[in-house]
Amino acid sequence: MTFSELAAIVLLLGLAGVGCSRSPAMEPDRNPQQGAILLSAHGCGSCHTIPGVSGASGTIGPPLAGYARRAYIAGKLPNQLDNLMRWIRDPQSIEPGTAMPNLPVNEAEARAMAVYLYTLR
């Protein structure tokens, strides 16, 4: 095998890796990474900058960096899991008319996303 052949194979294995992304099991509590995937899939990242979430660099809403340490949700609710899940599923009921729209998020998804946000310190 020549050097260039070897180089080509190494390069291709690298390229192959580029196209593969992992799809972790649907167990949010044990795997915060599931929350990161949902934050990306639901498009939260088109409005929020969220560390560790693919493509999440939006500036429509506040950055969610360090969210585990945040005292309030949207300046209104104490930052606790159940409140955060409520906000993610139905912000309009907490702050009618806010620029964050209601999105079709189910309870398990909201929990997974909240669990991920609480890994951000």
Partner: peptide
């Protein structure tokens, strides 16, 4: 940590939503 971080403030679209 009481309110949102004001990083990249000029780029932000809304104030308090």
């Amino acid at each position: 940590n009481v309110g949102p971080p004001l990083t990249r403030w000029a780029e932000r679209q809304f104030i308090s939503g």
